[in-house]
Write a protein that binds this DNA or RNA. Structure first.
Ligand SMILES: [Mn+2]
Ligand SMILES: [Mn+2]
Ligand SMILES: [Mn+2]
Ligand SMILES: [Mn+2]
Lengths: 219, 219
DNA sequence: ATTATTATTTAGATTTGTCTAAATTATATT
DNA sequence: AATATAATTTAGACAAATCTAAATAATAAT
């Protein structure tokens, strides 16, 4: 099955957001792809028609087996190109994502496999994320880190280690929940507090205690 | 100026067909891009609007200085990727064109220049065609070969060394003219005749004498 | 149980790139 | 010069991917 660039980007985003087996919601995909929810609904109908996702109105989206297979191929291409850019063309790891976002859509299987071979069949990309093999087999993604130890600027909230309702309430009020993407604006050494920002919201600062409880993964 | 993939393909085709300074005609572009003349006219209006081509109804198309500059960038990317595929990924020279046709549209300047460096700044691609440098400077294209000495399967007619009207008439009747693309089907050793084919026409055989007069360039 | 808020979908429109069929212009032939 | 043929353009349509604004459904708050 040959997909358009737009379809591939959707499939990849759904794969990314569908951690474990939760159904992915429309708004999350729209945010991830920097588009509008209405566009996501439109595309959902097409991808369902092509049997790449399961989708019922208002019920969220999950990849079918076929969709997941394709997603893994795209992820494989993306991460292999990232390796190439860093290892062979001396790019730094923060420059490669955008470029790989385009290169991943060049579909030749032979190209991808030759590239992998050329790179010595790497198993992780420059960001530590695992690279699926030619059969789509992928090792479990890297373990989570607490926000206070994270080293990247853009992060995704993947869990909270302290389940106290007071903390959760605070986070909820601030708009922080599972899957929320945050940008680290600044880290203050004097008290190890961290200033963070969520898209379309004002930046705010959280204490070291809080930052220790937020489990994140780099994006 | 950021171009779409379609626009880039048109610009590149016009560059390719516009050898020297002849205006390129609609049908030639349509043939080259495997599309319809009506689509070429539509695109011509857009490219004129963007000041990448000079175009007046029924008068053919030529690149502007700006258009030529962009064409050379695309050609540069295409040929560098072909080098990469052959030299680094062990592709054979007849497999690389299609893939490079996609890779050429990844626009990052930094990527192209790093790639060139990585390859040792090559000056010709696997087909012997010159690679423009980062400033768009390109060495004159390789000299033409007569059809009987050509080594590639797909060729473009670039001239005729014998201008006798009888020969030209014959060629004209067969549909062979400047810019015609031909495929070599077979070469017969017993009399050095060559069976060739033009798109959408039945294959036919030409004698050694004729094949010596047809000047071609590999595609 | 209402009401307010948020998430999602629908309806209708736009842009890009393409097509077919018909009309027009240019070129070649008689 | 008239006519036939070839090249090109126009008119009208379509699919893909997107958007805005309005309608609807689900969820949360009172
Ligand atoms: Mn992409
Ligand atoms: Mn990565
Ligand atoms: Mn191309
Ligand atoms: Mn080439």
């Amino acid at each position: 099955m040959k997909l358009t660039v737009a379809e591939e980007n959707y499939i990849k985003s759904i794969y990314k957001l569908q951690d474990g087996s939760t159904a992915v919601n429309t708004n999350a995909i729209a945010y991830e792809l920097d588009t509008k929810p209405a566009s996501v609904t439109d595309m959902a109908k097409k991808l369902k028609e092509k049997r790449l996702i399961d989708y019922e109105k208002y019920q969220g989206i999950t990849l079918t087996t076929e969709g997941r297979k394709l997603a893994l191929q795209i992820v494989r291409r993306h991460r292999l190109w990232e390796c190439f850019l860093v290892e062979k063309l001396s790019f730094s790891w923060d420059e490669v994502h955008e470029i790989a976002e385009e290169l991943e859509h060049v579909g030749s299987e032979k190209l991808v496999n030759r590239l992998s071979e050329f790179l010595g069949n790497p198993t992780t990309d420059p960001h530590g994320d695992p690279i699926p093999d030619a059969q789509g087999k992928i090792s479990k993604s890297k373990q989570l880190v607490s926000l206070d130890k994270a080293t990247t600027r853009r992060l995704e909230v993947a869990g909270v280690s302290d389940q106290s309702s007071a903390l959760l309430e605070f986070l909820h009020a601030k708009g922080v929940k599972l899957g929320t993407q945050i940008d680290v604006i600044e880290r203050y050494e004097f008290d190890n507090s961290v200033e963070i920002k969520i898209k379309n919201q004002p930046a705010f600062t959280i204490s070291e205690q809080v930052s220790k409880t937020i489990m994140v993964k780099p994006l």
